[in-house]
């Protein structure tokens, strides 16, 4: 056991880079592949996961002393489900068009390995505040990766960012100008997400290996 106590904020910062859930622990992949088509959707998903992870970790940590060991996992699942349902109801009420696109993926946050991983791995062993920061950091790290993947996919697959046309229309190929630019449609399909994440893992290994 170390004699110096690390500042509480390291719980947060560790999760963003050196312990990034997607790149290092390779968790939370399912939704990272499915919802990174468009930036608006990816950011909504990233924020939702951050919210759920942070608060679930907080409550699991608050209840850690009174939870019987035999029902530990189901308690964590119940707490996580409650927050996911809260997010789902909010999205349906105030962000209806995005909730239509996300549809079942919001429910799948429950089984998102990141959330369970944090509650099981960290929250039940530490104080509430570090648990909250750890959960928030994990979610934010995940959100950042989602942002990068969605940025690349929307830019090259649609020529847009947040629905605004970035690549000028005049560059596109038409019947009159068949050698013009065409969207890289593969980016819109799921395999592209695999390739991009594989590439990001490669880059993160390179930079972390050296630093």
């Amino acid at each position: 056991m170390s004699s110096t106590k690390l500042p509480v904020s390291t719980y947060f910062t560790d999760q963003i880079w050196s312990g990034n859930q997607v790149l290092v622990a390779v968790l939370g992949i399912c939704s990272a592949l499915g919802v990174t088509n468009r930036l608006s959707v990816a950011i909504t998903m990233g924020l939702s996961v951050s919210f759920v992870t942070a608060f679930s970790s907080l409550f699991v940590s608050l209840l850690r002393k009174i939870t019987p060991d035999s029902v530990r996992m189901i308690t964590q699942l119940a707490i996580i489900s409650v927050f996911v349902i809260i997010i789902d109801q909010f999205l349906q009420a105030y962000f209806f068009s995005i909730s239509k696109v996300l549809s079942v993926f919001v429910g799948l946050i429950i089984t998102n390995c990141i959330v369970m991983g944090r509650t099981e791995g960290m929250a039940k062993n530490v104080e509430p505040l570090p648990a909250f920061l750890d959960g928030l950091g994990a979610g934010m790290g995940y959100a950042i990766i989602l942002f990068i993947v969605a940025f690349l996919r929307e830019l090259f697959g649609f020529g847009q960012l947040f629905g605004y046309q970035i690549i000028p229309q005049s560059w596109y190929a038409t019947a009159a100008n068949p050698d013009g630019y065409d969207n890289f449609v593969l980016m819109v399909s799921p395999p592209a997400a695999f390739f991009i994440i594989g590439g990001l893992i490669y880059l993160s290994r390179k930079f972390q290996g050296n630093g």
């Binding site: 029902v71 308690t75 119940a78 489900s81 809260i86």
Partner: peptide, 22 residues
């Protein structure tokens, strides 16, 4: 019995929170 009590109370609290929100 403690476990059962714990689960029952937890379920009740969850149900109340969710129903109110819904």
């Amino acid at each position: 019995s403690y476990t059962i009590l714990f689960m029952v109370i937890l379920s009740l609290i969850c149900a109340v929170i969710l129903s109110t929100l819904a």
